[in-house]
Computed example of a mutant assay.
Amino acid sequence: MDVVIRDGTPDDAPSLAVLKLAWANRRDATVEESRSFARDLASWMASQGDSLLTQVAEHRGDLVGMAWLVVFDRVPDFSDRNRRTGDVQSVFVNPEFRRRGIGHALVSSLVDAADRRGIPRITVSSNDAAARLYLGTGFEASPRLLERRLNQER
Protein backbone atom coordinates (compact mmCIF):
# COMPACT_ATOMS: atom_id res chain seq x y z
CA MET A 1 0.00 0.00 0.00
CA ASP A 2 1.62 3.24 -1.07
CA VAL A 3 -0.27 5.47 1.35
CA VAL A 4 1.76 7.70 3.64
CA ILE A 5 0.43 9.02 6.94
CA ARG A 6 1.90 12.42 7.75
CA ASP A 7 1.22 15.67 9.58
CA GLY A 8 -1.24 17.90 7.80
CA THR A 9 -0.44 21.59 7.39
CA PRO A 10 -2.33 24.72 6.34
CA ASP A 11 -0.81 24.16 2.87
CA ASP A 12 -3.00 21.05 2.67
CA ALA A 13 -6.16 23.10 3.24
CA PRO A 14 -7.47 22.92 -0.36
CA SER A 15 -7.34 19.10 -0.30
CA LEU A 16 -8.55 18.95 3.30
CA ALA A 17 -11.50 21.14 2.34
CA VAL A 18 -12.46 18.61 -0.34
CA LEU A 19 -12.22 15.79 2.23
CA LYS A 20 -14.23 17.79 4.80
CA LEU A 21 -16.94 18.46 2.22
CA ALA A 22 -17.08 14.74 1.39
CA TRP A 23 -17.13 13.90 5.14
CA ALA A 24 -20.10 16.26 5.56
CA ASN A 25 -21.74 14.83 2.42
CA ARG A 26 -21.70 18.30 0.82
CA ARG A 27 -21.02 17.31 -2.75
CA ASP A 28 -23.32 20.17 -3.80
CA ALA A 29 -20.78 22.86 -2.83
CA THR A 30 -19.77 25.17 -5.66
CA VAL A 31 -16.16 25.65 -6.66
CA GLU A 32 -16.17 29.12 -5.06
CA GLU A 33 -17.70 27.79 -1.84
CA SER A 34 -15.00 25.12 -1.74
CA ARG A 35 -12.24 27.68 -2.32
CA SER A 36 -13.66 30.01 0.32
CA PHE A 37 -13.90 27.13 2.79
CA ALA A 38 -10.30 26.12 2.02
CA ARG A 39 -9.08 29.67 2.77
CA ASP A 40 -11.02 29.74 6.05
CA LEU A 41 -9.77 26.29 6.97
CA ALA A 42 -6.13 27.23 6.29
CA SER A 43 -6.50 30.38 8.38
CA TRP A 44 -8.12 28.46 11.22
CA MET A 45 -5.44 25.74 11.14
CA ALA A 46 -2.66 28.32 11.26
CA SER A 47 -4.29 30.07 14.22
CA GLN A 48 -4.57 26.92 16.36
CA GLY A 49 -0.88 26.41 17.06
CA ASP A 50 -0.19 23.35 19.20
CA SER A 51 -3.89 22.99 20.02
CA LEU A 52 -4.42 21.16 16.74
CA LEU A 53 -2.96 17.97 15.36
CA THR A 54 -3.91 17.04 11.82
CA GLN A 55 -2.97 13.76 10.23
CA VAL A 56 -3.46 13.04 6.55
CA ALA A 57 -3.23 9.97 4.37
CA GLU A 58 -1.50 10.70 1.08
CA HIS A 59 -1.57 8.45 -1.97
CA ARG A 60 0.59 9.45 -4.94
CA GLY A 61 0.39 13.13 -4.03
CA ASP A 62 -3.36 13.19 -3.33
CA LEU A 63 -4.94 13.31 0.12
CA VAL A 64 -7.27 10.35 0.60
CA GLY A 65 -7.89 10.57 4.34
CA MET A 66 -7.76 12.88 7.34
CA ALA A 67 -8.04 12.87 11.13
CA TRP A 68 -7.97 15.80 13.54
CA LEU A 69 -7.20 16.10 17.24
CA VAL A 70 -8.27 19.33 18.91
CA VAL A 71 -6.41 19.81 22.21
CA PHE A 72 -7.76 22.08 24.89
CA ASP A 73 -6.99 23.08 28.45
CA ARG A 74 -9.27 21.99 31.24
CA VAL A 75 -9.87 23.77 34.53
CA PRO A 76 -6.84 23.15 36.76
CA ASP A 77 -7.13 20.85 39.74
CA PHE A 78 -5.13 21.32 42.92
CA SER A 79 -3.01 18.27 42.09
CA ASP A 80 -2.97 18.72 38.31
CA ARG A 81 -2.66 22.30 37.18
CA ASN A 82 -1.96 21.68 33.50
CA ARG A 83 -4.89 19.51 32.50
CA ARG A 84 -5.26 18.91 28.79
CA THR A 85 -7.79 16.89 26.84
CA GLY A 86 -7.95 15.92 23.20
CA ASP A 87 -11.00 15.38 21.03
CA VAL A 88 -10.74 13.35 17.82
CA GLN A 89 -12.80 14.90 15.04
CA SER A 90 -13.64 14.52 11.34
CA VAL A 91 -11.93 11.21 10.65
CA PHE A 92 -12.58 10.36 7.03
CA VAL A 93 -11.12 8.11 4.36
CA ASN A 94 -12.29 8.26 0.75
CA PRO A 95 -14.56 5.26 0.11
CA GLU A 96 -12.28 3.70 -2.51
CA PHE A 97 -9.45 3.57 0.07
CA ARG A 98 -11.43 2.09 2.96
CA ARG A 99 -10.79 -1.32 4.51
CA ARG A 100 -7.03 -0.96 4.05
CA GLY A 101 -6.16 0.11 7.60
CA ILE A 102 -5.84 3.79 6.71
CA GLY A 103 -8.43 4.97 9.25
CA HIS A 104 -6.72 2.89 11.94
CA ALA A 105 -3.33 4.35 10.99
CA LEU A 106 -4.68 7.91 11.08
CA VAL A 107 -6.30 7.51 14.51
CA SER A 108 -3.29 5.62 15.89
CA SER A 109 -1.00 8.44 14.80
CA LEU A 110 -3.18 10.95 16.69
CA VAL A 111 -3.20 8.73 19.78
CA ASP A 112 0.59 8.33 19.61
CA ALA A 113 1.07 12.10 19.29
CA ALA A 114 -1.25 12.69 22.26
CA ASP A 115 0.72 10.15 24.29
CA ARG A 116 4.01 11.89 23.44
CA ARG A 117 2.48 15.17 24.63
CA GLY A 118 1.26 13.60 27.85
CA ILE A 119 -2.42 14.24 27.11
CA PRO A 120 -4.14 11.84 29.52
CA ARG A 121 -7.66 11.87 28.06
CA ILE A 122 -8.92 11.71 24.48
CA THR A 123 -12.57 11.61 23.49
CA VAL A 124 -14.35 10.88 20.25
CA SER A 125 -17.97 10.92 19.16
CA SER A 126 -18.66 7.99 16.89
CA ASN A 127 -21.44 6.47 14.89
CA ASP A 128 -22.05 2.72 15.07
CA ALA A 129 -20.15 2.01 11.85
CA ALA A 130 -16.94 3.68 13.07
CA ALA A 131 -17.04 2.47 16.68
CA ARG A 132 -14.93 -0.61 15.86
CA LEU A 133 -12.19 1.62 14.50
CA TYR A 134 -11.95 3.55 17.77
CA LEU A 135 -12.27 0.46 19.96
CA GLY A 136 -9.40 -1.04 17.95
CA THR A 137 -7.16 1.93 18.74
CA GLY A 138 -7.65 1.83 22.51
CA PHE A 139 -10.85 3.79 23.08
CA GLU A 140 -13.48 2.40 25.43
CA ALA A 141 -17.19 3.11 25.65
CA SER A 142 -18.07 5.36 28.57
CA PRO A 143 -21.47 5.01 30.20
CA ARG A 144 -20.93 8.30 32.05
CA LEU A 145 -20.47 10.60 29.07
CA LEU A 146 -23.49 12.83 28.63
CA GLU A 147 -24.11 15.59 26.15
CA ARG A 148 -26.58 18.39 25.65
CA ARG A 149 -27.35 19.88 22.27
CA LEU A 150 -28.83 23.30 21.64
CA ASN A 151 -32.53 23.16 20.72
CA GLN A 152 -32.72 19.48 21.52
CA GLU A 153 -36.29 18.32 21.93
CA ARG A 154 -37.03 17.06 25.41
Results as ranks from 00 to 15, higher is better:
S43Y: 07
V56N: 03
P10Y: 04
D87G: 03
V91D: 00
L106H: 01
D128Y: 04
N82S: 10
A17E: 00
G49A: 11
L63A: 06
L133V: 11
N151H: 13
A42H: 09
V88E: 04
P120V: 09
A67T: 04
E140H: 03
D87A: 11
W23L: 14
L63I: 12
R83K: 15
G101P: 05
R60D: 12
D7W: 03
Q152S: 10
G61Q: 10
S15P: 03
V64G: 01
Q89V: 12
G65D: 02
T137A: 10
G136H: 05
S36E: 14
M66I: 07
D128F: 02
L133R: 07
D128S: 14
Q48M: 14
G138S: 06
G136P: 05
V18G: 07
L52P: 04
Q48S: 11
A17P: 05
D50V: 02
V75K: 09
G101S: 11
V75W: 04
T85R: 10
V56P: 01
V31M: 06
R148T: 10
R27K: 07
M45I: 14
D112G: 14
A42T: 10
G118K: 05
G49P: 04
A113M: 06
V88P: 03
G136N: 13
L145I: 13
D12A: 07
I5A: 08
D73E: 14
A67F: 06
L41K: 03
A130K: 01
G101N: 12
E58W: 01
A105L: 09
L63P: 11
V64W: 00
S79Q: 13
L150D: 03
G65L: 01
A29T: 12
P10N: 06
A129F: 05
L21N: 12
S109M: 04
A113D: 08
L21Q: 07
